Simulated assay, not measured.
Amino acid sequence: MSQEPGGHVPGTGSAAGPDWPGNLAAACRGEGLSAAYQPITDTARGTVVGYEALARFPGFPEKNPEAWFAAARAHGRSADLEAAALRVALKARPVLPANCFMSLNVSPELLRTEKIREIWRGQGNLGGLVIELTEQTPIDSYLELEPDLNQLRAAGALIAVDDAGAGYAGLRHLLALRPSLIKIDRELIQDVDRDEAKRALISMLGTFASRVDAWILAEGVERVEELDALVDLGVPLVQGYCLARPGPAWEQIDLDVAHRLASKPPVTHRSTVRDIVEPATTATSTAAAAAAFDGARDLLMVVLLGEHRRPVAVLDPTTAALGMMTPGMKVNLDTPLSEALARSMTRTQDTRFSPLLVTDNAGRFAGVARMERMITALAEADPATKDQQQP
């Protein structure tokens, strides 16, 4: 699954090296293979909102995951090994903590293989899973992957891109994929507190992410100074040794670091959706929404929720009665108001002024943002508007 530095590209094995054919055969059967889980933390609250599953090989002399996946590619066993790693990681899914997601690493070129497809079919509903496309081999075009990616999304999974800012995970691929989660390459995170250029690039990625309804996640955070810089930049999700190393399911982050995050004042250098979000009536089916409208004639909207309290659509009395829904546009609590308003204007004319669905950093429903409130808040924050309003 996840790659870690320091491995070698193995050959066919020798008297001095691993018996790769035999070792791979055993690991692909799940023997000597296990999973570790690294917490993913919400910087605004200092709480764990997800875990990345990482392959481990405790039953063999060779422990380095990178060496194992390189050997699998060299011996034509990539799909077998990744499928085995996914099966082991997913065994813990039934006891995944409430309101947490699990991130799973998959090589893009293997998504279309039956061995990987069988994994998803065996899981049924994929809500709460994040499928992270990792950089194993360059992918020139994602067009051939679209059917599989669309099926994963339809089953409830979110798509993530690993190592944004490095390798093939450039802006062109981000535009083609429209992922829900963008993981920033750890080379950009290293010494971010000392490098203005890195901070500028991360800020740019954050702006891009907010425009395409995605979150950014900074991985490889190893120093508290890096963590502080990321918090100041408004990065919503972080992971790394500074917070917690990969370990058994489901460990929490370092208590001192959690307190450090929770005690930090919120970033106030720009107005965000958080400032104007408001509650709304919710339902878990269109029938329940229709019943809510019947019971309250002055009710104007009901938000339809999916698994793990993830918002799906805004319903009015007519759409609820007919059982119809159009997926609503979602924004994060920390999305700047100006960006949320600009994005809302890209919708079709009949939905352009519908309320936006607001989520927290774990994708849970946090409320709605009405267009009139966003416009009013931006007008009130504009110094020129304030000057005009003064007598």
Results as ranks from 00 to 15, higher is better:
Gly206Thr: 06
Gly127Asn: 11
Arg172Lys: 14
Gln151Trp: 11
Ala160Pro: 08
Gly295Met: 04
Val192Ser: 04
Tyr241Leu: 13
Leu188Glu: 07
Asp213Gly: 10
Glu144Thr: 14
Ile182Phe: 05
Ala288Lys: 11
Leu24Ala: 09
Asp275Asn: 14
Arg297Ser: 13
Arg112Met: 15
Ala280Trp: 01
Met345Val: 09
Ala83Cys: 08
Lys330Phe: 03
Asp163Asn: 11
Ala83Leu: 04
Leu230Asp: 08
Arg29Phe: 01
Asp360His: 05
Val273Gly: 08
Arg87Glu: 10
Ala26Phe: 01
Arg211Trp: 08
Met325Pro: 00
Ala55Asn: 03
Gln190Gly: 10
Glu52Met: 07
Ala89Gly: 02
Ile184Asp: 06
Ala164Cys: 13
Leu171Trp: 10
Gly170Ala: 15
Glu219His: 11
Tyr37Arg: 02
Asn125Ser: 12
Gly76Glu: 04
Gln252Tyr: 00
Leu96Pro: 09
Leu300Pro: 00
Pro138Glu: 05
Val224Gln: 10
Glu144Phe: 14
Leu333Tyr: 04
Gln136Gly: 15
Met371Phe: 10
His8Pro: 01
Ala35Gln: 05
Glu187Leu: 12
Pro18Glu: 11
Ile40Gly: 03
Ser263Glu: 09
Leu243Gly: 03
Thr47Val: 15
Ala296Lys: 01
Val267Leu: 13
Lys198Trp: 06
Leu143Cys: 06
Ala292Lys: 15
Gln349Ala: 15
Ser354Phe: 11
Thr47Leu: 15
Leu81His: 00
Ala229Lys: 08
Phe353Arg: 10
Asp350Pro: 02
Ala157Trp: 04
Glu372Pro: 04
Trp120Asp: 05
Pro179Gly: 04
Pro248Cys: 09
Pro18Phe: 02
Phe353His: 11
Ser103Asp: 07
Glu226His: 05
Met371Asn: 12
Glu52Cys: 04
Val88Gln: 10
Ala160Asn: 07
Pro97Leu: 04
Ser203Leu: 12
Gly76Tyr: 06
Thr359Asn: 01
His308Gln: 14
Leu104Ser: 07
Pro317Ile: 00
Glu307Lys: 13
Ile131Thr: 06
Glu66Pro: 00
Gly220Leu: 12
Leu227Asp: 03
Gly323Asn: 02
Leu230His: 08
Leu110Cys: 07
Arg186Ile: 10
Ala379Asn: 15
Gly50His: 01
Ile189Thr: 07
Ala98Tyr: 05
Ala381Gln: 08
Ala287Arg: 15
Gly206Phe: 03
Leu33His: 02
Gly13Val: 03
Met325Tyr: 15
Ala197Thr: 11
Asp387Tyr: 05
Arg270Cys: 11
Asp254Met: 07
Arg117Ser: 12
Val267Ile: 12
Cys242Ile: 08
Leu243His: 02
Ala85Asp: 05
Pro179Trp: 02
Ala249Asp: 12
Pro58Arg: 05
Gly122Asn: 07
Val277Tyr: 05
Gln3Thr: 11
His75Ser: 04
His259Gln: 12
Met371Ser: 06
Arg121Phe: 05
Pro97Gly: 07
Glu278Cys: 13
Cys28Glu: 01
Leu129Glu: 04
Arg199Asp: 03
Thr326Lys: 13
Arg56Pro: 03
Arg117Tyr: 04
Gly46Pro: 01
Asn99Gln: 14
